[in-house]
Design a protein around this nucleic acid. Structure first.
Lengths: 242, 242
DNA sequence: CGTGCCCTTGATGCAAGTCAAGTTCCGTGG
DNA sequence: CCACGGAACTTGACTTGCATCAAGGGCACG
């Protein structure tokens, strides 16, 4: 079943809650359409009613909000296996925008089917709740990052988080990974300008904390980077006991 | 039943999901102990296992995290009627600290009892999920606030949010309300220093956007304040259709 | 072989931080 | 009822991290 489009979602949900074969099967049996979307596609806009639940099969997505002055804040990054619309399961209006970051393949599941599934399987309802709670935990850590760390620390923290999350989904092979974001997007995620992101990246590079080849970033000394970032992965709740 | 300690929680849960008399009754029947706590009491610490679910009956609480450098970021404010530990219902380790902001009365409910209640009543499970999702939505708006607004805007936004939330719980009587925080705590919530919070408060005051008498703040021109804050209450999901 | 996005770098400005010294407000005990 | 002590608030002088403005430079793609 490793090639089923919802495999990574199941993997993620099982990371926190024990599911039996029947429950796994019920998830795989969810009605869904696969849709390939180009980078930058809006999947949901603030104010819209969420009617379908998109799951990232491949590619990346982000959540963002825009202020009256037209400035953007990215409030979340999503990686393969994550459900983009669990955040709205019991709400009737979207409070933020969801957009693909890269070319992406989505599994589109009717929201009602997710509701029904959760109602039939308490363990799945629990796994969904856990999924939502972990996103909330990540949001809290981002607040700390944006509110209380320097540009260099914020950047290091983002890199550590991305590494951990990709690794947990089995998406890291070598030493580093591709961070598929422009420096402007990184700035929007960290509450900085692209110019300052650029200077901060180069500073980390000169310190030998990261190396870059295009957008592929590697970490010669991950321990030191974590220390700079004040990174503690507890908030990601990667282990079932967390 | 207006005087039942869990009345405000029921009110809050009913704000989003229709509950019938039996479900309401089941919530009121939750086993609980009432405990009065002084200001500043830690209710849960990062890394601890959450075993009880505290509900604020009176008084205020906050969630915060502390960086390696000892700087604090408040990531959430909680008002009467809010459950402090729904955030951890299906997690095994707390990822942040919870502390009372003022003297407070808590209803302490065993976590297991909440679990059982949700398992028996899908509508209540749904209401809990909604409660968690709304907190996540508030967290996203705070990221925007901290990351992309000026000190003056951040402060105005916090004041508007607090006004709306108190009002939704029926806790506002006159023109203004008491904001029971020191300027240092406000700074910790907004990613600012207390000195700068002070200057920003006085700037709002001089502009005629707020008036103060001790910690009671009033808003002579709430529309203008909202406009300054770029405040749109959609993210609070106060109406059932949201 | 342009043309348009990114990335890079320099010069300059400003919002917010830091440091430090009062001042006001209150609770408490004499 | 008043004096004292401590926490919170206020204000000024100075510093700094990041923003802004502006001008290249590289490289992918049609």
């Amino acid at each position: 079943m490793a090639s089923h489009p919802l495999h990574l979602l199941v993997r993620k949900l099982e990371g926190g809650v024990q599911l039996d074969a029947e429950q796994r099967q019920a998830i795989y049996a969810l009605p869904h359409m696969i849709r390939a979307t180009p980078a930058g596609t809006y999947l949901l806009r603030e104010g819209d009613p969420p009617t379908i639940c998109a799951v990232l099969v491949t590619g990346y997505a982000l959540r963002h909000k825009i202020t009256r002055h037209g400035v953007r804040q990215i409030v979340s990054l999503q990686i393969p296996g994550e459900a983009l619309d669990f955040q709205h399961l019991s709400l009737h209006t979207a409070d933020h925008n969801i957009q693909t970051l890269t070319q992406a393949d989505l599994a589109l599941v009717p929201m009602q089917a997710v509701h029904d599934l959760a109602a039939r399987h308490p363990a799945i309802a629990d796994a969904i709740l856990r999924h939502v709670q972990i996103e909330a935990s990540i949001a809290r850590e981002w607040m700390v990052n944006i509110g209380r760390r320097t540009a260099r620390e914020r950047l290091a923290h983002l890199l550590c988080e991305f590494a951990c999350r990709l690794d947990a989904q089995g998406l890291v092979n070598g030493e580093g990974y591709e961070l598929p974001m422009t420096q402007e997007q990184i700035g929007d995620a960290l509450g900085l300008t692209s110019v300052h992101v650029n200077r901060s990246i180069r500073a980390l590079e000169e310190e030998g904390l990261i190396t870059r080849a295009r957008r592929v970033i590697s970490f010669p000394d991950i321990q030191r980077l974590r220390s700079v970032a004040d990174f503690n992965d507890l908030y990601l709740h990667l282990r079932r006991q967390d």
